[in-house]
């Protein structure tokens, strides 16, 4: 499996450049033109990233997530979600690297092929770092009013978490 994923990236790069070359496009000049724009974009999203990563780092350090996990245990029981995966569900939308650490811990502690390990795997594999995406995407624009973006994205996350537990119970008996 690892071998297929190793092929994808180089293959896509070669396809794009190769196709352009065959079509007699000035591939190098075009690349530089685009890359220059990419550099500007990176600088543009930096302020939004600083704001979000500072806020996320502080809330992780404050132990708020442990408190939330504790408070949400009855809700999790009601939704048939094992409480061991709650920290992962809480951290997944706000911090990609933080979620990865918790996911590792769950796999090590309960085993990847246990019910908890499987549900955590499906959660990890079927959701994204919502807040990071919103900060980066809107950070590159001048948009201040994001309207319904956050509620819609968080609904998708919540449905994804609940479906992870359900899908494991349905498909992996």
């Amino acid at each position: 499996m690892d071998r297929i994923s190793d092929f994808i990236l180089p293959a896509v790069i070669i396809c794009i450049v190769g196709y352009g070359f065959i079509k007699k496009a000035p591939v190098f000049d075009l690349f530089l033109e685009g890359a220059k724009e990419g550099l500007c974009t990176s600088v543009q999203i930096l302020p939004a990233l600083v704001a979000l990563m500072t806020a996320v780092g502080m809330i992780k350090a404050s132990g708020a997530l442990d408190s939330f996990t504790y408070a949400l245990r009855p809700v999790a029981a009601l939704l048939h979600l094992p409480q061991e995966v709650l920290p992962l569900a809480l951290l997944r939308p706000i911090s990609g690297s933080g979620a990865l650490v918790i996911f590792q811990d769950i796999l090590r502690q309960y085993g990847p092929d246990s019910l908890i390990g499987r549900i955590a795997s499906v959660m990890q594999g079927s959701t994204e770092t919502t807040f990071y995406t919103i900060a980066v995407y809107y950070g590159a624009t001048k948009v201040q009013k994001t309207r319904h973006t956050l509620p819609a994205a968080l609904t998708a996350d919540l449905v994804g978490f609940l479906m992870s537990a359900l899908a494991v119970r349905l498909l992996l008996p």
Binding site: G20, K23, A25, T41
Partner: peptide
């Protein structure tokens, strides 16, 4: 966040450049 942006800057340049080629061709 600054470290991440610098790391991202390389990928950002790479894919913005490739995107331009894909558009033009």
């Amino acid at each position: 966040a600054v470290t991440l942006t610098i790391q991202l800057a390389g990928v950002m340049c790479l894919w913005s450049g490739l995107m331009r080629i894909a558009q033009a061709s």
